[in-house]
Write a protein that binds this DNA or RNA. Structure first.
Length: 264
DNA sequence: TGCGCGCGGCGTCACCCAAG
DNA sequence: CTTGGGTGACGCCGCGCGCA
C-alpha cells in the first residue's frame, strides 16, 4: 500500500541490514521494506513533492534519513507521521538538517495500521506492562538508606577533623553524598553525641530526595538519548552502505555502456 | 528442572562543566 | 564559588537461553 508505514520486525525482507535499500532501486510507491527497530515510510509518486523514503523511530524522537535532500514533504491523509517531539532529527547524506512539516494535523500520530492516535496513547514508554511490573518490585535500598533506617540520621558518626563549629550548630561535608557531596548540619547534646535537629534533617532529606529523583530522571533520559544516538549511527551506516552499493552499480552500468560503444 | 551466563535496564554515586 | 544538569561507572535485578 502506498504511503503506508510498517513497524519493523513483523516481516522479513531486505531492510534489516539496509533500511534504505529500496530508496534508490524501488519504483515510486513500492511497498516499504520492514526493518528491525525502525519504521519506514514511502511516499507515492503522485505526492506533490519529492519521493521520500525515510526511517522513523516509533514513539520517540526520531531520525529521518534520505539519500537525497528532503523537499517540502506533504503527507497524504491516512499516512503516518510522527513527530510531535520538537527536537527530532532529520538528516540526509548531504548532512543538511531540514524541517519536516506535518499537514494537516501536526500532532497526529498514525500507528502501524494507519490509524491515527494521540501522542499520549501511542507512547509505549512509561505505561508498558513490563515497566509497571518493574515498578511493583522493590529494589534493595541504598546503603545510605539502610544506615538511616538503623538510626544513623539522628546520631551521626562524625569523622575526625571535619567539624566546624557555628553557634552550637555544626557543618559536615559528606563526600559520599549524592550529587557530588552534601553539607550536613548537626548539633551536639550534653553527652557529646551528635545529632541532626528535626527541621534541618527534614530539609536535608527533602533536598536529597529531590536530587535523587532528578538524577534518576536524568539518567533515564541520558540512556534514552544514548540509545537513540546509537540507532541514528546504525541508520546512517545503512544509508551509506546503500549509497555505496548504488554507486557501485552505477559504475558497473556505465562501464558496460562504455565497452558497448567502444566495440561498435 | 536447576544452574550458570549474558544482556538490558535501573538507581545511585562521583565527577565534570557551564551558567549564574 | 555555587549550583544544577549530563554522563560514565558500578552494582543489582529480572529475564531469556543453552546445557547437563
Amino acid at each position: 500500500m502506498e504511503g503506508m508505514v510498517e513497524e519493523n520486525g513483523t516481516t522479513g525482507g531486505a531492510g534489516t541490514t539496509d533500511p534504505l535499500a529500496s530508496a534508490s532501486s524501488s519504483t515510486p510507491g513500492s511497498t516499504p521494506h520492514v526493518v528491525t527497530s525502525i519504521v519506514q515510510l514511502t511516499l507515492p509518486s503522485q505526492a506533490p513533492s519529492a519521493q521520500v523514503q525515510s526511517v522513523i523511530q516509533p514513539n520517540q524522537q526520531s531520525v529521518i534519513q534520505t539519500a537525497s535532500n528532503i523537499q517540502s514533504v506533504q503527507i497524504p491523509k491516512g499516512n503516518v507521521i510522527l513527530v510531535s517531539k520538537p527536537s527530532s532529527v532529520i538528516h540526509t547524506t548531504q548532512g543538511t538538517l531540514q524541517t519536516l512539516q506535518i499537514k494537516p494535523e501536526p500532532n497526529t500520530l498514525v500507528n502501524t495500521q494507519g490509524q491515527s492516535c494521540s501522542d499520549e496513547s501511542c507512547g509505549s514508554g512509561d505505561e508498558s506492562p513490563k515497566r509497571k511490573y518493574r515498578e511493583m518490585l522493590t529494589r534493595r535500598p541504598s546503603y545510605r538508606k539502610i544506615l538511616n533506617d538503623l538510626g544513623g540520621a539522628e546520631i551521626a558518626v562524625i569523622p575526625a577533623g571535619t567539624i566546624q563549629t557555628d553557634s552550637g550548630l555544626h557543618t559536615l561535608a559528606v563526600s559520599g553524598a549524592a550529587g557530588g557531596g552534601a553539607i550536613v548540619q548537626y548539633a551536639a547534646n550534653q553527652d557529646g553525641q551528635f545529632y541532626v535537629p528535626g527541621p534541618i534533617l527534614e530539609d536535608q532529606t527533602r533536598k536529597r530526595e529531590l536530587r535523587l529523583m532528578k538524577n534518576r530522571e536524568a539518567a533515564r533520559e541520558c540512556r534514552r538519548k544514548k540509545k537513540e544516538y546509537i540507532k541514528c549511527l546504525e541508520n546512517r551506516v545503512a544509508v551509506l552502505e546503500n549509497q555505496n552499493k548504488a554507486l557501485i552499480e552505477e559504475l558497473k552500468t556505465l562501464k558496460e555502456l562504455y565497452c558497448q560503444q567502444k566495440t561498435e
